[in-house]
Design a protein around this nucleic acid. Structure first.
Lengths: 261, 261
DNA sequence: CGAAATAGCGTCCATCGGATACAGTTTCTC
DNA sequence: GAGAAACTGTATCCGATGGACGCTATTTCG
């Protein structure tokens, strides 16, 4: 029968990733000592990805960077997808510590959970800013690593005492996470263009403007919106702040009204 | 000087995509008539991607599907990235028509913009459901195609009369779009696993459960949340509905309070 | 002291995106 | 009409990629 592993699992193709990410494989006793380590390989791959994107990560280059041959890496990693999974989890790193319970802020700020979730979101955005390739690496069917699950744990923990259902807590984390990724997506589109690292807002407007010139009749609403932003000063991270505030407002309203409706 | 094209542009590497997506290149008069067409090539590539993901799209396979050689495609498309750009825009398709102004719903539903934005979101989610590879294709620096900009136009138009700033309108669209993509991301992780297409919520819980077994002490909040959802019935698209409602609530509150705060 | 298990390497392969050069076809100009 | 010019499709070639396989050297256990 198919899938006759030790125990049946929902992780069909990704058993290797699960083992690498979660199983601390003990060193076998016999045989030569390994000269490399998963950690060193992964760290090198991350450095390559940070410098040149995910496309710059190949087995050859990683091995070359370590002064080893390509095939030697396969003694440590079953394949490239598993290496990418390790890269993702290592690049995520440890989630930030939860803020102290006294950091509840002024009444009307929404309580401790809102402060905690905002700090969490900012830290996660910083991770995406440090490793833009994470956006492209984390698509498709994946298995969560310990660090990634640790991030989720922190966010869910922030919402544990809000009265939200367990499912609602998870759903809320998905929303906030989605916003972080969406903004990081837009921001990442800019940095690679050139050295003139303008604000994301401005570059997006510039790109839109160039497309819209002579086509304002076809896209009147976007044209009007872009034209109006061109005038006043668009403060940094405006989209980030606006979206996060709207999401947190929506959550706060739902929480404070006792989850009805 | 660098970038000495006809006119300076913010689209450095993607001039080819811009021309293909936006410029209707007229057929040259001399020479044999092309046997293929951009439209046919793109449609074939989309079919391959729908069937086997973005990885199943190679020049060879697209050409083979059309009974042509690989290199003949390069008479129509400068490179693969441009083909992917065309695929994205064609797969997006035309945005849905805006709902009639009478569809404002009952007072308290938030007005016409909320209905329009919800319909827009549902249509966009359907697109991602039809073409899951869009999630992976639309990462990194990209140039918007006409259809994609058309979708944005519709969403911004829905918010045009809300009193929101132009920038706020664009930011709001980013938030909703981010949520759609986040949910599609989770949903896409499921379908490929096997034929047993459970609800996304359940599969996510199953995957989490398998990781959490024996580790509930390390991830107490997630464990508790998952355990509580395992009991009661998780209705379909719960995460989708929850997140969208929270976002729209947040927008509505901001709009109805006159954009203060 | 073998025997077993492991680590790194060399070789080979299919496939990928793409450059280049070339033969056949259509149309414009003289 | 007769080039010449422009264009289409193709054949060949290249470097790079992920990965399979087998070999040799090393370490440890019986």
């Amino acid at each position: 029968m198919a899938g006759d592993d030790e125990k049946s699992s929902v992780f069909g193709d990704q058993a290797g990733s699960v083992e690498l990410l979660w199983g601390g494989r003990e060193r076998p006793s016999r045989g030569p000592k390994p000269a490399l380590s998963l950690e060193r390989i992964t760290r090198t791959a991350i450095a390559l990805a940070d410098a040149g994107g995910l496309g710059a990560v190949s087995m050859q280059r990683v091995a070359g960077e370590l002064d080893f041959t390509k095939m030697s890496l396969y003694r440590y990693v079953p394949g490239k997808s598993e290496l990418v999974a390790l890269m993702i989890d290592m690049a995520m790193g440890e989630p930030p510590a939860a803020p102290s319970p006294e950091a509840a802020g002024r009444p009307g700020d929404g309580g401790w959970w809102r402060v905690a979730l905002r700090e969490w979101a900012e830290a996660l955005a910083a991770v995406y800013h440090r490793h833009p390739w994470l956006l492209g690496a984390a698509v498709g069917p994946r298995v969560m690593g310990p660090n990634e699950l640790g991030w989720t744990e922190r966010a869910v923990a922030a919402l544990a005492d809000t009265g939200l259902t367990g499912g609602e807590q998870l759903d809320a984390v998905v929303v906030v996470n989605g916003h972080i990724r969406a903004i990081a997506q837009v921001s990442a589109s800019m940095g690679l263009d050139s050295a003139r690292a303008k604000e994301p807002e401005q570059v997006m407007s510039a790109a839109l403007n160039e497309l819209l010139v002579g086509r304002t009749d076809r896209f009147p609403a976007v044209s009007a919106a872009v034209a109006s932003t061109g005038a006043d000063d668009t403060s940094r991270d405006q989209a980030w702040e606006f979206g996060l505030e709207r999401i947190l407002d929506g959550l706060e309203a739902y929480i404070s009204r006792g989850r009805r409706g």
